[in-house]
Design a binder for these strands. Structure first.
Lengths: 109, 109
DNA sequence: TCGATCGTACGCAATTCTTCGTACAATCAA
DNA sequence: TTGATTGTACGAAGAATTGCGTACGATCGA
């Protein structure tokens, strides 16, 4: 359960964008951002199985978006807010501020 | 050569992030942002073949990032800057402002 | 009209991503 | 110690992405 956390200076912005460009992961990030406290992985109501969630947490961690640490049986996840904001000023805030789409989505058939 | 341009109000932010989360496409967007004038597709020095470039232009167009129009033999591409900034305030600017990674990239082997 | 140019469409291969089930390790509570 | 909880590792399937070559349509200039 010990994990790799990259130096954010080495992360290109497209890696962060790709990490957040997935609905499950963006949902996780929004949940984390909405909590003042760090959250355990199990407390995040994701729509996928545990195995799949593990995959998404790894993507977020390896792109520098989140930090994880063990705490007893659980794993605590939190956003690397300050570091992200120093590396990519304003990015997280503008993404979190984005409103949901207006209505029926997608290109015409 | 006539193409579909989505209503940006219907685009979720993760679609834009996914579109920009690719090095070829982010490069294209940076080139477009650096020009005051719209550019033709052929004038963008991309590292892939024409066929692949066509694919990336479509992704950018269908995610609402660019607009295309025919002009004689060529296709003119431009960013939908104002619309993007209204839909996702500050997003494009913060992404374009992101500095490149400091040096040797990637996780340890 | 003929040739060159610009981009698309199609089909295909290789790779990556997303998802899951199952088995397992680590930890805690009883 | 035993059983429950939390999350990982591994293997696999299916889907999506990325990339290319080739053939083609549209347009322009000579």
């Amino acid at each position: 359960m010990v994990s790799y956390h990259p130096d954010l200076d080495l992360i290109p912005v497209e890696d962060v964008l790709a990490a957040l460009g997935n609905p499950v992961r963006l949902f996780i990030v929004r949940e984390l951002a909405a909590s003042t406290q760090p959250r355990t992985c199990g407390s995040l109501p994701v729509s996928v199985t545990k195995a799949t969630a593990t995959h998404h947490w790894r993507v977020l961690r390896e792109s520098g978006v989140t930090r994880e640490r063990r705490e007893g049986r659980t794993k605590v996840v939190e956003l690397r807010r300050a570091e992200l904001d120093e590396r990519f000023p304003g990015l997280l805030a503008t993404i979190l501020a984005a409103s949901p789409p207006r209505a029926s989505d997608g290109p015409p058939a």
